[in-house]
Each structure stands twice: as structure tokens, then as C-alpha cells.
Amino acid sequence: MKTIYTILICFLLANATNAQERYLTKNGAVTFFSSAPMEDIKADNNQVLSIVDASSGKMAIAILMKSFMFKKALMQEHFNENYVESDKFPKATFKGDILNFDTIKDSETKVEVKGTMTIHGKSKEIVIPANITRNEDNILVKGEFNLLVADYDIEIPGAVAKNIAKKIKVTFKFNHKPYKK
């Protein structure tokens, strides 16, 4: 019986030390915007998971592609079926480091986040500019950047070339809270 208690205490201690370091959100917001001559397309996802490890400045993001909401249902279907192929590649992910994480204060600080973005099964190294605010209770990360559809092997057929932009504007906002397991 004693052994079990000891094991449990060890577990709790180990986890407790972990918990303070990490900040997580399950409802981060990612919006993408495509502006083309024929039409503008916008999609929102408010169920993005993001985590920051405050001890190392490492960051990871997981985006469920099917959670992107479009104005037109048919656009959403085509997005999932024909472009990002959500059945095969359900998630887009990012994994990297917040550069100069130690310089970030309780006021908005401009930094760069460098890492690997994986969309449609294709990975690419990128550097994203971000504004980060950090205090004891939360780490707020927000910003915007452009990405090229072609970088992730997503084809745009000629017939809709005037409807879908080659360069997509992405905006994001993650309000991380201390992560307690």
C-alpha cells in the first residue's frame, strides 16, 4: 500500500513541476483570407490548439482542417475534398521556437517564431512575425503572415484561377493559459 502512495506522490510531483511551465489554449483563432479577381474567400477556425513551453520558448500548434468554417457550404466541401484533402491530412501543424523568448515582457513584444509548418502532408521551414504578451497567467500570441498555396502542393486548377489567390493571408490569435493536466 505504501508503495502505491509513494508512486502516486512521485507522479504528482513530476506533473506539478511540468504544469507551471506550459501554457495551452484549445480555442485559438486562425483565419485565412484569399483575395482573387472573381471573389474573396474567408474561413475561420476557433478550435485551434496551441501550446507554449515557457521554460524553453518552444511552441506547437495543431489545426483541424475540417473545423474551418466558410460562408458557403460548397466552398467548405471543396476545401476539404479537393484542396487540403482533409480525409488524408486531417491536421495542419506547426512546431518551432519563439526566438528571444526571454525578452518578452508584460507588454506587446515583436518577435519571430521559427519552425516547421506542415499542411496537406507537406512540411516547410518558415519564420512568422508575431506579437507576444507574457505574464504569469497567460501568454498571448497574435499576428499575421502570407503563405503560398503552391508551397504545400495544393493545386489550383486553371478554371478557378480567378477565384482563388495563390497567396493566402493568415491571421492568428492564441490566448494561452497555464496548462494543468
Partner: peptide, 28 residues
């Protein structure tokens, strides 16, 4: 008992070194 403690500790250390993306996977 000692073996058990060592075992649990190593296991916990592994947990803390766990990849951030795996944490997100578990939290999905």
C-alpha cells in the same frame, strides 16, 4: 519499492520531455 520509484521517476521525466505536438494530440 526503490525500483518502483526509479521506474516512476524515469517515466515522469519522459512525460515532461514529451513532444509538444503529442501533448496537443492528447488534448484534442
Amino acid at each position: 519499492k526503490i525500483i518502483a520509484i526509479i521506474f516512476v521517476l524515469t517515466f515522469s521525466i519522459q512525460l515532461s520531455a514529451q513532444d509538444l505536438l503529442d501533448v496537443l494530440n492528447n488534448e484534442t
